[in-house]
């Protein structure tokens, strides 16, 4: 009768956010190539990829800092 409800906390949320970032990194090269193939785009794929990765790197660093600074030992 005493059914235990499975719960998630900040740690799992942070992990999910990092997974989301990873998924973007995963599909970024092919999507950038598709963007570069569009008629009105004049930028080079390498420049677009580098720029996007630089911005996403900021989030990755932020997520890493949160892992270091947050108290994840709530359980």
């Amino acid at each position: 009768m005493d059914k235990k409800v499975k719960t998630v906390g900040f740690k799992e949320g942070l992990g999910a956010g990092i997974v989301g970032l990873g998924l973007i990194y995963f599909f970024l090269p092919s999507m950038i190539q598709k963007i570069a193939d569009l008629d009105f785009i004049q930028s080079e794929p390498f420049a677009m990829l580098s720029g996007t990765v630089l911005v996403l790197a900021v989030f990755t660093v932020a997520a890493g800092l949160v892992v270091m600074l947050a108290n994840l030992n709530e359980e």
Binding site: G13, L14, A16, G17, M31, I35
Partner: peptide, 23 residues
């Protein structure tokens, strides 16, 4: 960070539905 996951997945799935500009 759950919101970040939703944001990332929204634009990722959106890029398959309505074009790569979304990503």
């Amino acid at each position: 960070w759950w919101g970040a996951l939703v944001g990332a997945l929204t634009n990722l799935i959106g890029s398959f539905i309505s074009g790569p500009i979304n990503l």
